[in-house]
Design a protein around this nucleic acid. Structure first.
Length: 359
DNA sequence: CAGTCGTGGCT
DNA sequence: TAGCCAAGACT
């Protein structure tokens, strides 16, 4: 195994950090070390590509430039700024955590592992990233890049999908991390994973730490890291109503605050059960859930949307309101077509919205 | 531990 | 095309 003595570790740190400082990308969250900016960027970057995050980060910082600004913002505005980015609970958790920092820590992001880890949405990776990047504290920040890089450098065949593997790598980083520049060390590992030590066809010939890499030495870099395959996504069939009243308004509904597409808005829809017709199930659902008497019109079109772990097949009908009972669903709303754009919708429903708005 | 939670780009 | 993957956290 490489990196077995202090001298080789020091050389590894130096090679990595020197490369990082010379080759790091110019990214908006690297303009300074404001803990709030680092925090927001790290939340957005969870399971999300850098290129995707950049415009969202710039827009978000323009609207919510400080902890105070985000703390006092309307939740709807925060979700609207997150629209299209995915994993929407991140937005709600972030605002919850920012309010916690404002109340409990006088608006200062805490700088200890124990305190920062208590914040909603801040897990083992993000806590280490904030501590090292914003505060220069030598804590490991182990993400997918780091697990891939370390798996190759030490030629480790452990399944990086296991929590145990991540913990082991955190221990390894603890003994490898530079105490002089923890920020550049951690970011260097991630940048290396993003630019050189890529998942497929890594650029070993130009790698700054090639001489430290056991996988390269053995010629097995293409086999690493090991990641056990996930189960197939499940398909679900839904019926959805584009419901209009006499005033020309459309019915929209806010999803539950937890779970899939948390707190986002949608057009009324329900999962199908076998048996009765789509039209009948839609009418029954609108009656039961929203206390509306409706008449289902033409089937407008189909939408297919694939998530991480499931697939929607949605059939959309045009629906006319006949009459409404007094009790109404408190998460439902009639809106003019021009107002719909003010509400955050998931991409799956934007497909429906775009079609219906032209309709 | 294993399933849940988005989206878009790439192979 | 269908699957894989990305600066993970939560339950």
């Amino acid at each position: 195994m490489q990196l077995e003595n202090k001298t080789s570790v020091k050389n590894f740190q130096k090679d990595l950090i020197t490369w990082f400082k010379a080759n790091q990308r110019d990214l908006p969250w690297r303009e300074d070390q404001d803990p709030y900016k680092v925090w927001v960027s790290e939340i957005m970057l969870q399971q999300t590509r850098v290129d995707t995050v950049i415009p969202f980060f710039n827009n978000f910082m323009g609207k919510f430039p400080t902890i105070q600004a985000l703390a006092r913002a309307d939740e709807g505005d925060v979700l609207k700024a997150w629209e299209g980015l995915g994993y929407y609970s991140r937005a709600r958790n972030l605002q919850t955590a920012v309010r916690e920092v404002k109340e409990t820590y006088n608006g200062i992001v805490p700088n200890t592992k124990a305190e920062i880890s208590k914040l909603k949405g801040v897990g083992p990776y993000t806590s280490g990233a904030i501590l090292s990047i914003a505060y220069g504290i030598p804590e490991p920040a182990v993400d997918g890049n780091v697990m891939r890089v370390i798996s190759r450098i030490f030629a480790k065949y452990d399944d990086i999908g296991k929590d145990k593997t991540r913990k082991n790598i955190e221990k390894m980083i603890t003994s490898l991390i530079s105490h002089e520049d923890p920020s550049s060390f951690n970011q260097g590992l991630m940048e290396l994973g993003a630019l050189i030590c890529t998942p497929t066809s890594p650029s070993c010939t130009v790698c700054p730490v090639q001489s430290h890499c056991e996988a390269f030495k053995l010629g097995v870099q293409s086999e690493l890291p090991v990641k056990v395959k996930k189960t197939k996504v499940k398909a679900k069939k839904l019926v959805c109503g584009f419901v209009k009243n006499e005033a020309g308004e459309v019915l929209i509904h806010q999803r539950p605050n937890k779970g899939l597409l948390a707190s986002l808005w949608e057009f009324p829809n329900v999962e199908l059960t076998e048996g009765t017709s789509l039209e009948a199930q839609l009418v029954e659902f609108l009656q039961k859930e929203y206390h509306l008497n409706t008449s289902v019109g033409e089937e407008i079109f189909h939408v297919e949307h694939v998530f991480s772990h499931l697939k929607w097949n949605v059939t959309v009908f045009e629906v006319e309101l006949l009459s409404a009972e007094k009790e109404s669903n408190n998460r439902a709303k009639w809106v003019n077509r021009s107002e719909i754009k003010q509400y955050p919708f998931p991409v799956s429903h934007q497909k429906i919205m775009n079609f219906c708005l032209d309709f």
